[in-house]
């Protein structure tokens, strides 16, 4: 297996990536009306852990992620990354968006290279790192293509490695595979797990798909609505490395069913309200 070299060079990375969310509350004001999106959320994600935030739409799972990224300011509470108070967006937190978000005017190579270029990494070094990552996800051949010439799956692979080349401590992923077809999605999930096990960085992954959360996560935080909060912190005991056919085991089904019932009651809450 061709593990990614940059990881081997910097082993101390594995102790980074502790995310602490303390008493986080966020309210959005619209037309003078304040709506509570999150109420008193506590989270602690250990370095190198893969956690999923799972919940029906409107539970505020993306809002938590946006707050960790520094896109929105909490009304109350604090977020820390490796004991550093988070105030604004930064390169220590990679982000993969649900929408295709490659810069349309840059080629695949230039997109992946962008973060390193900003940081002033010398050209030759940039080329080495970027080409290594492109090879790893099978995009080397398409390095000179513009984003619109790539399929959805290829664009998301490029987005993932773009957020990884700068060696962030934590990778934040906001339903990154939601727009992909089922087959591509499964392949992307496996690829993500492989890369994660090579880089050992913290991943916080938002999804509304129970199967996806159980397949990927060490832990799954199940969220409730009105106001958005974390209801349950479920440890997924499935062995790693995981493979797609694991989803057919009875253990997998059992966990999924447990979560399904938790979420169902929350979804009904939303439906009754409307």
């Amino acid at each position: 297996m061709v593990a990614i070299k940059s990881l081997v060079e910097t082993t101390e990375i594995s102790i980074k990536g502790l995310v602490e969310v303390e008493d986080l509350s966020i309210a959005f004001v619209r037309d003078g009306c304040s709506t509570k999106v999150l109420q008193s959320v506590y989270l602690r994600v250990e370095p190198g852990e893969f956690v999923c935030l799972l919940g029906p739409s409107g539970c505020g799972k993306s809002t938590i992620l946006n707050a960790i990224a520094g896109f929105i300011k909490p009304n109350h509470g604090h977020i820390y990354l490796d004991h550093q108070h988070i105030q604004k967006p930064g390169a220590d937190r990679g982000f993969v968006f649900q929408q295709y978000s490659l810069l349309p005017w840059k080629t695949t190579f230039e997109n992946v290279e962008f973060g390193l270029k900003i940081r002033g990494v010398p050209k030759q070094k940039r080329k080495e790192i970027v080409e290594e990552y492109l090879n790893r996800v099978g995009l080397y051949k398409h390095r000179h293509a513009f984003p619109h010439q790539l399929s959805g799956g290829m664009q998301q692979r490029a987005s993932i490695i773009r957020s990884l080349v700068g060696s962030p401590s934590v990778l934040l992923m906001d339903e990154p595979f939601a727009a992909l077809d089922a087959q591509t999605r499964h392949m992307m999930q496996e690829l993500l797990l492989e890369i994660w096990s090579e880089l050992k960085l913290t991943v916080i992954f938002v999804t509304h798909d129970i199967e996806e959360a159980v397949f990927l996560g060490d832990r799954v935080f199940v969220m409730g609505v009105n106001p958005g909060r974390i209801m349950e912190d479920i440890r997924i005991p499935l062995q790693r490395p995981r493979h797609l056919d694991d989803i057919m085991t009875s253990e997998f089904t059992q966990i999924s069913r447990q979560i399904f019932h938790l979420i169902r009651s929350e979804t009904l809450k939303i439906l009754n309200l409307e």
Binding site: G70, G90, A91, F95, F114, I118, R119, R162
Partner: peptide, 9 residues
Amino acid sequence: RVGQCLGAG
């Protein structure tokens, strides 16, 4: 936002 997450000022 993409730029900010990559460290762009």
